[in-house]
Design a protein around this nucleic acid. Sequence first.
DNA 1: ACCTGAACACCGTTCAAGT
DNA 2: ACCTGAACACCGTTCAAGT
Lengths: 230, 230
Amino acid sequence: MDSTARPRSTRDRPAKAPLSEEAIVDAALGILRSDGLEAVTMRRVASELDTGPASLYVYIAGRDELRAAMLDRVADLVALEDPDDARWREQVHALLDAVLKSMEAHPGIATVALANPPTSPNSLRVAESLLGLLLTGGVSRQDAAWACDVLSLLTTASAIEADVWRARGDTEAESEWVDGVRRAFGSLPPSRFPLITGLTAELTSGSGDERFHFAIDALLDGMVARAARG
Amino acid sequence: MDSTARPRSTRDRPAKAPLSEEAIVDAALGILRSDGLEAVTMRRVASELDTGPASLYVYIAGRDELRAAMLDRVADLVALEDPDDARWREQVHALLDAVLKSMEAHPGIATVALANPPTSPNSLRVAESLLGLLLTGGVSRQDAAWACDVLSLLTTASAIEADVWRARGDTEAESEWVDGVRRAFGSLPPSRFPLITGLTAELTSGSGDERFHFAIDALLDGMVARAARG
DNA sequence: ACCTGAACACCGTTCAAGT
DNA sequence: ACCTGAACACCGTTCAAGT
């Protein structure tokens, strides 16, 4: 793309990196990965680049534009594969799983995704691929179009849920937080919450991933059934 | 500073309300409805109550607790009905629609919902009702439990999407923003995005509500099919 | 004992002034 | 012409001091 390829320098004193949108987004993503979205402030990004906050505005319109640029960069990490008639269903799972994992590696970015329409270049790249898989699976054109939206929503929401679990569970695996929820459910008054108390095991079973893939399967099942009905 | 003559009333506020968690949450919800989530700051809430920000901390642990309390209050607005075998499916739609509408009336609260585990008293009330409807519909216990989570996620995500559309479209109906997206999709290079450009009509058709109920139906279809398969 | 003024350590963004 | 120091108008939260 660019003529002057430079090694991506973020931390550890890269002598002096000339300011650019790319460098700013790089620095922001570094902060995001290590300290989460709340830590990504204009001032923090600027100080990471050894300059004042005002200088960022030469390259980026503001905080929201920076967040959108970060989001697009995260979507760029998702690898795509061509549709295969025999494997379209697992390909859908694999694609959405890649989106989920990419977001989970950048805690807080899912929140940004929900606040921005999915029309950035790399979001469109993913959407184009997902549409292809759904059509290959025999889903109707209208259903595929809407499912594309719904599946994205679901993936983003799952990523946010994962972010929250991790933030609450701190260093430990999900189990600790889930245990808390299980205890909370179990100690509810059964008279007022007969179903929740009776289904505590089911409500707290499965990992986030299992629930995510369950939802995808249920949605695909529904649309395939709908296509079969005509 | 004469305190006997007349309490200095701020605008049309009910004279002097004694501070309490309820009064604080009330004030916060008022700001939320009129100016959105970003405007709900500890300082703004305090000034609305004619006091300093420090005083709020006597009744509320902090900003996040205030947001959680606001969320629970919004969930309290949802009316429930007893499951009816013949109408369970439309009852699911009605329940989730009520949750969606309640959130849409409080712009930004959906973001709070995604950041908090759905274990507040009124969230549990809604979950208990939804579980009952799904079980009445013949969905398996495990599927009902997970679907409860997925449907909540979907509803919350839809509410956020509605918030974003409204924020972008400003005063006008959705159409203006949708037109923009349609134009953006249409002007994409067909060689790189053959499906998106070919499906622009389908991708941008339907209101948010239609897409929302489509997603619910597809999910329910999938789970009913699953239950039928055994 | 209860409440809060004032302070601390931050924000995003702007713009006049400097180079 | 380009960049940025300094300022403006805000944040959430704490705690010593006042009543």
